[in-house]
Amino acid sequence: MGLLSKKDAALITDPLADNNPITIQVLGICSALAITAELKASIVMALSVMAVLAIGNVVISLMRNIIPSKIRIIVQLIVVAALVIIVDLVLKAFAYELSKTLSVFVGLIITNCIIMGRFEAFALANGPWRSFLDGIGNAAGYGLILIIVGFFRELLGSGTLLGFKVLGDPIEKTGLYAMGYENNGFMLLSPMALIVVGIIIWIQRSKNTSLIEEN
């Protein structure tokens, strides 16, 4: 990549695979379970977290030398909460339809541990540009897992992708359903998301054995 130095590029590519916030650091699991019953919600959540994390990282990074270390967690919480509320209000005023789709996610974004985790672990010690890249990278890594989980849960649970009936109509018995295929309702429930994430972790660690922790 000519645009970014090798070190900067790693900030984006590392969280996608070998330092993925969900599968390696096991952060942000709560929202990964809650909203991945359909693909569209996963994509919306991934993009929202990306916006908040990138901007939040830059803000915290700019403030890093003046934040008193005793109350830094509170300061981080205030920054992310204020940011999310302002974005929500502005959307409500100027993009009302979009804000209705996103409002469900607002609470989930504020409490997402990836956001606090990156503020604490990266933005407090690095400059704004690198923090911005780190925010994009980590949100992308998080979003990637969300989208994979959402893809399988919607496909196997509802037989649709982004709302399109890709496997035929379960009530009219067309497509795959004509051959006796049934949707797996269990896929729609949160425990199945945990199992799907578990399978992803399994595949990832069996491909790259250096990721396996030693006892």
Partner: peptide
């Protein structure tokens, strides 16, 4: 320093949120 920072932060964020809220309220 910690206390002064906390007070200033609350004032700044509070004012900011209140301003955005009252500016967007009629449209909302």
């Amino acid at each position: 320093y910690t206390i002064v920072f906390a007070v200033v932060m609350v004032l700044v964020v509070g004012t900011l949120l209140a301003t955005v809220f009252s500016l967007t309220k009629p449209t909302i």
